[in-house]
Design a protein around this nucleic acid. Structure first.
Lengths: 213, 213
DNA sequence: TAGATTGTTAATCGATTAACAATC
DNA sequence: TAGATTGTTAATCGATTAACAATC
């Protein structure tokens, strides 16, 4: 029988893989060679079958019944499934507190993200550098985006400016937007908006406290 | 018939409400009095029935058939459902780039969150202030947590320190954790961990680019 | 009244969990 | 071989969407 093409990995599963990866990297550091789905499941408090399905989706027939999966093989397979081996250039718009924090963070390399430049409306910031990236006026966005072949836009402007910034990014040819503003962004079909919904997180924390506290 | 107690609001729905709120606030600013579910749905690209169910869950029989919902009433109801009217004190651990950004951000007030103090392992930071909050050594955590009756812990330390910090926070009596490290945290049943899974967001962006780009 | 929209019950869809044969 | 675990098919569960009567 002909095997199906790469079985689709669900959105939810993608959310779990970073935690698998962290756990597997620790096992690898302690020189553990094999790991089983039940072992991962109990450590991460997930259902054993769910883990097995997740692993099967990225690492076909790597598991040995009665033994488990080779740790390093799993690590490689998960990294590939999460596209951590790809390189994507990004522009960041909004060099406020959060924008600066993201610019300064050195760890995005591990996830395949490279922020190449930043933009802000405040003229006093123009020309200055944060985390080695220069801050430009918004007027330069279009030029830099196409010149550097950028595909990701990161929006860290205040909520009321997000929509306009998004349109500018899309017009410049960007294909994916990482949005930190709690604003719905309308984009053409070929563009993906990934929202970082901190307001929802805070609501869930608050809800828990209201119920348990 | 006796009406059921407050119908449960799903996790997913809670993620949508902040976007409703933003949209409704804009309508309110432009003095619009009524809004209908189809109107919200088309603006936010959601299914009309989903919006209606969401609104019904927080704002029982506020809607008038043929007309819609009063905007201000909806705003109030959503804020209450998201517990934005409650006040919760939080401690932040890890005054690196992201920690500093969160400490400096003034908008958490709107969500009912008040960060009262920060902690870091680096002695050179001790005693300094960021966003009006003093940074203390970790040894002070337990004392300050109970003295100020803090219920939320925010973890912005590197991944390998997250687990230990979490244990310390839980031991100090905290009831909810907002975790920015890509690490699974094991906590007692009465404690909620809310993960901000940026690694998953990046994977989804990268996946989209690999498929469309 | 006619038109639009609400609110609810039923159908569908996707993801999680259960059950179990295959295999190292 | 016996024990543990894999990998897959079936059952369950929760959320989304469809259908439709009620009502302003």
């Amino acid at each position: 029988m002909i095997p199906k093409g790469s079985s689709e990995i669900s959105r939810q599963a993608i959310g779990r893989f970073p935690y698998y990866l962290k756990f597997l990297n620790e096992l690898n550091l302690s020189r553990q060679e094999y790991v089983s789905a039940p072992m991962i499941a109990s450590s991460l408090q997930l259902h054993e079958v769910q883990v097995r399905k997740d692993l099967a989706a990225v690492s076909r027939r790597a598991g040995k019944p009665g033994v488990g999966f080779p740790v390093t093989r799993l690590i490689d397979d998960i990294k590939r499934a999460l596209h951590y081996d790809s390189r994507n250039r990004a522009l960041l718009v909004g060099a406020g507190h959060l924008g600066k924090a993201l610019l300064s963070y050195g760890g995005f390399d591990d996830y395949g993200l490279e922020i190449v430049a930043a933009f802000d409306a405040d003229p006093s910031l123009h020309g200055s550098e944060i985390g080695g990236k220069t801050i430009f006026p918004l007027e330069k966005l279009d030029e830099l985006s196409s010149r550097l072949n950028v595909r990701i836009g990161i929006i860290t402007v205040p909520s009321n400016a997000a929509e306009e910034v998004c349109e500018r990014l899309v017009a410049s040819g960007i294909l994916a937007v990482w949005n930190f503003a709690p604003t719905y962004l309308s984009v053409p079909e070929h563009v993906l908006v990934q929202n970082e919904n901190m307001a929802a997180s805070l609501a869930l924390l608050s809800k828990h406290l209201a119920e348990k506290g």
